[in-house]
Nucleic acid binder design. Structure first.
Length: 260
DNA sequence: ATGGTCGCGCAGCGA
């Protein structure tokens, strides 16, 4: 079972690239972020024609997350599944796809250290941690895929010195990510690829992609039963090339579900 | 080259 995550930076602008990618990568499950669509504008029929069921949670203009699946799509929940006040933004979507509970997340960017949005980011991650503790079991198959807007370690950015004082690499952000890992999630891509220089996001500006100056902020966090059966992991840099690319590349893992 | 790019939506913000 191939599970992927991709921040598409507008699904309206990216639909041809997403369709092309589905055709050649053939993921079983794809988590999308930054669709920037209202639910009424989500192109579900286009995905249906390619063999995918889909669910979307969006508000239009900003944010927006989706899950596509060709192995079933059940028990869909939009937003935090914790009976508390709804999130102000459309950043989270849950669905059960075959044997795996899947969550697509677009973690707040944070904007600047000390900004209200930075506090919102940390609160958002803490709320996810609380929800996992209250309602999930790390012994069961769960994958949270998305744009976490956090580089887990210094090796996940092209030059840590360039990020002095910036969001995405601060200790509170990394601590919030570690809290998810301490509950029972693991960075599945990193487990198979410990080498540095592997990124999932490159700024559009200044030829950052061609200079290989990126950040690895798109993660597939998986519980132990999933992570122990991962046979392959990849950042598809091809999808960052060519005509009208997203500024993020898709990240995928292959899971041997027979061993789940 | 002292700025570089997108997307949204039509100015300027967010990333």
């Amino acid at each position: 079972m191939r599970i992927a995550t991709w921040n598409v930076n507008s699904l309206k602008a990216r639909l041809p690239r997403v369709e092309e990618w589905l055709a050649y990568a053939r993921p079983d499950v794809l988590c999308l972020q930054e669709t920037k669509l209202a639910d009424s504008a989500f192109p579900g029929l286009a995905f249906e024609s390619l063999g995918y069921r889909s669910a979307h949670h969006g508000e239009g203009r900003w944010n927006g997350v989706a899950i596509l699946s060709r192995v079933g799509l059940d028990d869909v929940v939009a937003g935090f599944d914790d009976s508390r006040e709804p999130d102000v933004d459309a950043r989270m979507l849950w669905a059960t796809c075959g044997p795996v509970r899947v969550c697509s997340v677009y973690v707040p960017n944070g904007r600047e250290v000390g900004h209200d949005h930075y506090r919102y980011k940390l609160d958002w991650l803490a709320r996810l941690r609380q929800h996992l503790e209250a309602a999930h079991d790390p012994a069961r198959p769960l994958v949270i895929g998305g744009d976490f807007n956090i580089a887990p370690a210094d090796a996940d950015v092209w030059d840590i010195a360039a990020f002095e004082g910036s969001t995405h690499v601060t200790e509170p952000e990394r601590e919030a990510l570690r809290a998810l890992e301490e509950w029972g999630l693991e960075d599945a891509f990193r487990r198979l690829h410990p080498e540095p220089g592997l990124y999932s996001y490159w700024d559009y500006r200044a030829g950052m992609f061609h200079k290989r100056q990126g950040m690895r902020i798109d993660l597939l966090l998986a519980t132990a039963p999933v992570v122990e059966t991962v046979t392959f992991a990849l950042v598809d840099r091809q999808a960052r090339k060519g005509k009208l690319p997203s500024d993020h590349a898709p990240v995928l893992i292959d899971v041997d579900t027979d061993r789940l």
